[in-house]
Every structure is written in C-alpha cells, then in structure tokens.
Design a binder for these strands. Structure first.
Lengths: 248, 248
DNA sequence: TTTTGACTAATTTAGTTTAATTGGTCAACC
DNA sequence: GGTTGACCAATTAAACTAAATTAGTCAAAA
C-alpha cells in the first residue's frame, strides 16, 4: 500500500511524532547539561532553547511550564537510573541480592549528578521549589520499593527477620545516605573511589542483613527470577510514565 | 596557719579565681543556651552578657574576642562530650569495644546540639566563620583518634584486619554520619529513637568489623584496660586544654 | 500547520541611602 | 585592685529604586 513515493497520512503522522520526540529529547539533553553546569535556578528557558537549537516557543509546544519540563527531565533520569541499575544487576552474579541491589542502586545514583542532587536535596543544584515536593517524593518512593523487596527477601529467608522491617529500612537509609554524602567531610587520605565505597557498603549489608549460610541453589534460582521480574516491572512502570510525558 | 578569721593572700587569690571561673562558666552557659536557640550568627555579646547577668565589659575580661569565647565554649563542649562518652562506656559491659565506642560517641553527639551542629557543619546554627576552620579540624581530630584505636584493636584481633584501615575508617565515617543526619530525610513511619538508631549502628559495626569468635577472657580484660586508659587520656588532654582557656 | 522570536508582565538582581545593631574600648565607679 | 555600662567606629540590616532578567504569549513567518 504505502511506498516511498506516496505515503499515507498514518506514516507521515508517525514520522512527525518521532521527529518531535527526538526534539523533546534534545531539549531535555540541553536542560540536563545546563542544570548540571549552572544549577536549576540559573538555567533559563532561553539558555535551554539556544543550546537545543530551537526557539523558545517550541519548548512551550512540549511543556506547559518550566516546572513541567523539569519534571519530564527527572522522570527521564529516573528511567535512565532504573535501566542502569537493571543492567548492572544483570551482569553481576550476585546482583539479585539485597547487598547487590543496594550496591548498584547507590553507585548508579552517584553516577547521576541530577538524581544525586535530588536525593541529597542539594539546594545549590536543585532549586528551592523542587526541594520540598519532588525530593521528598522521590526519596519516599525509593524507600517504598525497598520495603516491598525487603519483605519478599525476608519471606524467603534471604534477609534476617529477627529485627523489624522499619529498623532494616532505617539502617539501609542511613548507610546509603552516609555513603552518598560523606565525601566532602572526609580528609583526602581517607577518601575512596565510588566503586570501592559501594563495595564496602555491600559487604556491610551482606554481613549485617543476610544469614550466615547460603540458600539452596534451587531456592536462590527462584528468588532471583522474581527479583529480576520486580526490577523489570519497576523499569517498565517508569518507562510508561516517561512516555506519557514526552508525548506532549 | 590560715583559718576562717584571718586569711592570707594565697587564699583570697584562689577564692577569687574560682569565683571568676564560675562566672566564666555562667557566661559559657548563657552562650550555649542562646546559640542553641538563635544560632551563632544571631547571638550577640549583649545578649550573652544580659543572660549571664554581667556587663558586656566583663566578658572581655575573659576573652579577647567573640570568636575566642566561642572557641572556649566548644572546648568545654568537647570535654563534656568526652566525659559523657567515658561515663557511658564505663557503665556498659560492652563499652570497651569498637561498636561500643561508636555507639556511645554517636549517641553523645546526638545529645549535644552544639557538637552535632559542628560535626554536621550545620551552617544554620554554626556561623560561616567556624565552618571551614573549626568544623574540619574537629572532624579530622575525631577520625584521627578512631584511627589510633582501630590500629590497637586490629593488633589484638578484635577487629578484622583483612581490609585496610582506610576502608574501615571510611565505613565508620559514612555509617555514623548517616545515622547522625538521616533523620530529616526519613518519612515519619520509619524514624526511630536515637537510642534505637545507635543500637542498630552498633550491631552493624559488630557484624561488619568484629571477628566471629569472641576473644579469650584474659585478653579481653587486658584490651579493656588499655582501651579505658586511652579514653581517660583523651578526657584528660581535653580537660587541660579547657583549663588553659578558662584561666584567662 | 508548525515554528519562531519580539513582546509583556512579573520577578530578580544590583545599587544606594538610611537606620539600627554590634563588637570592642575605656573613663568612671565600686 | 575588679567591674561596669556609656560610648564609638564599624558592620549589618532595612527600605527603596532602577535596571536587568525571566517565564510565558502570540501574531507573523516559514
């Protein structure tokens, strides 16, 4: 039906949409870069438009307000983070464990200046506006997901169940937050590379949270499957949210 | 020689000195209270004088500048903290261990708003001036003392020696800093009381840093003695510094 | 239809003047 | 002697204005 010479409306519409989506990504790229360099407050729509090579009005064809643009950027970053974490876990034989997840999630966060700033509520980078709303939300969502996974792992004897979940969540939060933001406090001769830091954290979690004797091979296999399914679902849900926001 | 009716010069001089020292303490009390309430920047010498019930000039009989007063206050707080920690360790059967020390030191810090603010570099409470100088110094001194103790405990097999000291110091720092400042991040239903938080931290340290099998009773006794001597020496050194600063 | 950029109303920033406060001193007082 | 609080120079805060910047709009161009 459709060929190179005479294309039907559907084709053209789709082509245009993908072109527009590509442009949306370019705009978000520009925003991400500028925010990382100048911080949220000092990054203007004009800057972003100039860097993305579009007119200012075009940006408002995609998002109604400046905050909407930022929201979309953060959602995209969330997705990138989730995919990064999934990738790291997939290539790590010990990925599908509590210490594995925490290790990869923390390292991924460290490597994403935007997410790190949001999680740590770095007011210098992220503006005051976001501070209260988005940051708290992001952190609580994170904890919520850990809670779900923790319950699952406890039920399968892969995590201690002799202390409360609240206490475990507290410890995991304190430890990972400590690792995320300790750096500027440390004297130079004690600093360690990110990769070493999360490795140390992982070992701590393993020793503190996971039982002495390893699980049976078959049970481990089963848990790993569900674990990975869970991660995949989180990625999928995030992806859907992002798609919704990119399609105008 | 000297009795109640006719005192010699020495007596009088000493009496006056103690009276002045008492006054110095009163001034520091006032300063501490006001700084806790209003923060360092908003606490004026006039405020302090009024609250301590002395004239402003009197304060300058004790310290040359506002900063000197603050220094003295922090030294005194350091001493109080060190004594508090020693007391807590003395009454805890497991006090003379790495996890015991960390637990009591962290809890003592939590209970001292002034020290907590300095360690966490809470710019809202502590002024900018102090930020760079005193805060860094205090933190590094802390780490230095832990290093000494860590080496000692490692040599006696009470702490793992299969990872580097640097890595151990990093982990202890990240963990305790995380515990110290995580609170405002947490959703309410995950918060735990300070006492529980440090208990969880202690358990983490025990599991992560200390060997599986307990030491022999006699060796433990020996280590405990040295451990306590070390704590005592830290307290004594701090006390001397404070004395020097209080005596004009 | 889609994209643009000049335009506007509103906010932020920068600069200035004025008023209040503050750290520190010292002559007078105890 | 030791202690005080009025006093001063210097700093900081407040009030105000002018200038610049910014998010968002929309008529015109592509």
């Amino acid at each position: 039906m459709s060929n190179r010479r005479s294309r039907n409306g559907e084709d053209r519409k789709q082509e245009e949409r993908s072109k527009q989506q590509e442009r949306a990504q370019r705009i978000l790229d520009a925003a991400a870069e500028l925010i990382q360099r100048w911080g949220y407050n000092k990054t203007t729509i004009d800057d972003i438009a100039r860097r993305a090579g579009v007119a200012k009005g075009t940006i408002y064809l995609h998002w109604k307000t400046r905050e909407d643009l930022f929201d979309a950027l953060m959602r995209r970053e969330e997705l990138a983070l989730a995919e990064d974490i999934r990738r790291r876990i997939a290539t790590d034989p010990e990925g599908a464990t509590l210490h594995g997840l925490m290790k990869h999630a923390t390292l991924a966060t460290m490597k994403s200046p935007l997410m790190k700033a949001v999680i740590l509520r770095d007011t210098n980078m992220i503006g005051e506006l976001v501070h209260k709303e988005y940051a708290t939300e992001a952190y609580e969502e994170r904890i919520d997901r850990y809670k779900t996974l923790l319950e699952f792992l406890r039920n399968h004897g892969l995590v201690r169940a002799d202390i409360g979940i609240r206490e475990e969540l507290y410890l995991l939060s304190a430890l990972s937050t400590g690792v995320l933001l300790i750096d500027p406090w440390l004297p130079d001769d004690i600093k360690v590379p990110d990769e070493v830091a999360v490795e140390l954290m992982a070992e701590t979690i393993r020793r503190t949270f996971e039982p002495r004797q390893a699980a049976t091979q078959s049970e481990l296999q089963e848990v790993t499957t569900v674990f990975n399914q869970y991660i995949d679902r989180v990625v999928e849900i995030t992806k859907e949210q992002v798609q919704k926001e990119i399609e105008r």
